[in-house]
Nucleic acid binder design. Structure first.
Lengths: 202, 202
DNA sequence: CAAGCTAGCTAACGCTCGTTCGTGCTGGCA
DNA sequence: TGCCAGCACGAACGAGCGTTAGCTAGCTTG
């Protein structure tokens, strides 16, 4: 059950462990920049042994990206669900999005860098999920503007800026830093509302 | 002087043309995801002929990324130079940065995606330039806060969010869209000041 | 018209990649 | 105790990569 591990690790090699190692390496060096031999070395086994736990390198990428994209969409739904105030909904949507990019840095980096390396049909599914998310945020901003609560002159531009700002958390956040993931998410949800033109911020 | 061009192009093949083709393809599919054979096909020549106009694939990447990074730093200097008001300086710094990401989309995408594929010593130079830029923006924010003109509670977090928001322009902007690069840069410089906590926005 | 440079070409290199195959050890269960 | 499934292994594959070498057609220059 455990690998001989010439590199020191002694964790069980499972499909989840393979995926985790691939996630780390894909995030660090990119999909095309990572060889399966590196994934295998990270687990202390030889390259062909990987195929006892996965079907292909492409499927590894597809799983990581699709799962993450679906979770983003689900979290957005949960964030806005049951909140009446449009500003509250937007704040919470931005907060969970920023929080995810602090707590799931590796997956976020892969989604934003290697989506172009995905094969169909997963590529279309992922792009569709991403589009739905952006449109939903844009609609929130537009609703806030219509109610006079927000002052964004162009909801599309604002939604792009706001979302990508949250994405960028994955590029610098460190769990060892002074700020916790929750702290950062809180700050970024404030930033997001300011970008959307919240009147009289607290 | 002109290539036989089985693919239809008939422009002269020069070092600049090779770099331009590589820029387009690296931006689209990533450094490791692009084969030199594709660059050659894009120019209507065979792969080995590329070596009459370049030294290596790695050097192609290094030139693109280093040049761009240096220009960013130079533009920042020119933007803040001679402006007394700290808010004006920050606004202009954000404006030129956002503008560049609309007008030089391909280069921006490469810098942000493939910097990890750079070899030393260029890697260190690029990271250093990027760090200088971020620190300078952070200092502007801190100065604005000290003067009571801005209300960012953490200049570091704000500078990251603000800069990466501008970077994201490269991911969606289209010169064929309704907004010009200047329009977008204007909007984003407003966003940036709001993120930095500008009091009573116009 | 001869010489020489430019820049294209084909062929070939050494290497690495993702993937497949068949073998053999090993540990849990009947 | 004997069997069977699980899983790591070495060997090998075909393909594609970046790069080099050597050749040649054509333009420029005296």
């Amino acid at each position: 059950m455990t690998a001989p591990t010439p590199t020191g690790e002694r964790v069980a090699v499972t499909p989840a462990a393979v995926r985790d190692a691939a996630t780390t390496l894909f995030a660090e060096k990119g999909y095309h920049g990572t060889a399966l031999s590196e994934v295998a070395a990270h687990l202390g086994i030889r390259t062909p042994s990987l195929y006892n736990h996965m079907r292909s390198k492409q499927e590894l990428l597809a799983e990581i990206v699709l799962d993450t994209s679906q979770q983003v969409w689900a979290e957005f739904g949960a964030a806005v669900d049951g909140r009446a105030d449009v500003v509250d909904r937007l704040r919470e949507a931005a907060r969970v999005y920023a929080l995810r990019h602090a707590t799931h840095r590796r997956e976020a980096l892969i989604v934003n860098r290697d989506v172009a390396s995905l094969a169909e049909p997963v590529l279309s599914q992922v792009l569709d999920l991403r589009r739905r998310h952006e449109r939903a945020v844009r609609a929130l901003i537009a609703e806030g503007v219509a109610q006079g609560r927000l002052a964004a002159e162009d909801p599309r531009t604002a939604s792009f800026g706001l979302l990508e700002m949250c994405v960028s958390v994955a590029r610098w956040f460190s769990p060892d830093g002074a700020l916790s993931a929750q702290d950062v998410a809180e700050q970024y949800s404030d930033f997001a509302l300011r970008v959307a033109g919240l009147r009289d911020p607290d």
